[in-house]
Structures are given as structure tokens and as C-alpha cells.
């Protein structure tokens, strides 16, 4: 299965608390006790995942963010979101669903 086809979900919403500060997002994960600083795109990705009822793929996330931002050119977002999800996985903030 290609990376872009994987569906991602975040930790339970109840375990996350966040605050937007000057465009960035600070988020605390109650499961790990860790607090992270996310730049704006990563913050959008986390919020999109946490608000989704089901897992989201990278194309889902790009479409969602495109709607929010009203952007036309999104080709660079695929690789950026892939990198963000990889980092989220390392931090324990999100993981891909098992096929």
C-alpha cells in the first residue's frame, strides 16, 4: 500500500489540549505528558485529524486544507504533509490505521 493511501488517525481528542499562539499550535498530549510546538501547517493537520470521524489519507488532508485555505497550488503539500505525519507518528500524536 502506498504511503498516500494510508489512513491516519490521531490520539483520542480527549487526550489532547491545544492553544493557537501567533499562528503556531502548542499541544499537550495527556497520554505521553509531552507538549509540542507545531508550525501552522502541522497544526492544521492535527486539528483536521482530530475532528475527523474516520481516518484520513494524505489526499483527504490536502483536500480539507485546500478548502480551508482556498489555495489553488497544493502540489507541495503532499510531501509536506507526509513529513508531518511521519513526525506525528514519531511523537505519538498520530498513526496510520492498519490495512
Amino acid at each position: 500500500m502506498s504511503v498516500s493511501a494510508l489512513r491516519w488517525h490521531t490520539v483520542p481528542r480527549s487526550d489532547l489540549i491545544w492553544r493557537e499562539l501567533d499562528g503556531d499550535l502548542v499541544v499537550r498530549d495527556a497520554r505521553s505528558g509531552s507538549t509540542h510546538l507545531l508550525e501552522p501547517l502541522a497544526g492544521h493537520v492535527l486539528r483536521a485529524l482530530s475532528e475527523a470521524h474516520a481516518g484520513m489519507s494524505i489526499p483527504d488532508l490536502v483536500a480539507r486544507l485546500q478548502d480551508e485555505a482556498g489555495a489553488d497550488e497544493t502540489s507541495a503539500w503532499f510531501s509536506a504533509i507526509e513529513a508531518i505525519l511521519s513526525e506525528f507518528r514519531r511523537l505519538g500524536l498520530a498513526e496510520p490505521e492498519r490495512p
Binding site: L21, D22, D24, L25, V26, T35
Partner: peptide, 11 residues
């Protein structure tokens, strides 16, 4: 200092 960075420094 962006507030997000300030927050992390307080942490």
C-alpha cells in the same frame, strides 16, 4: 518572541 516559542521555553 513568537508566543508559541515562549510557551515552550516556559515549559
Amino acid at each position: 518572541l513568537p508566543k508559541g516559542r515562549a510557551f515552550m521555553q516556559l515549559v
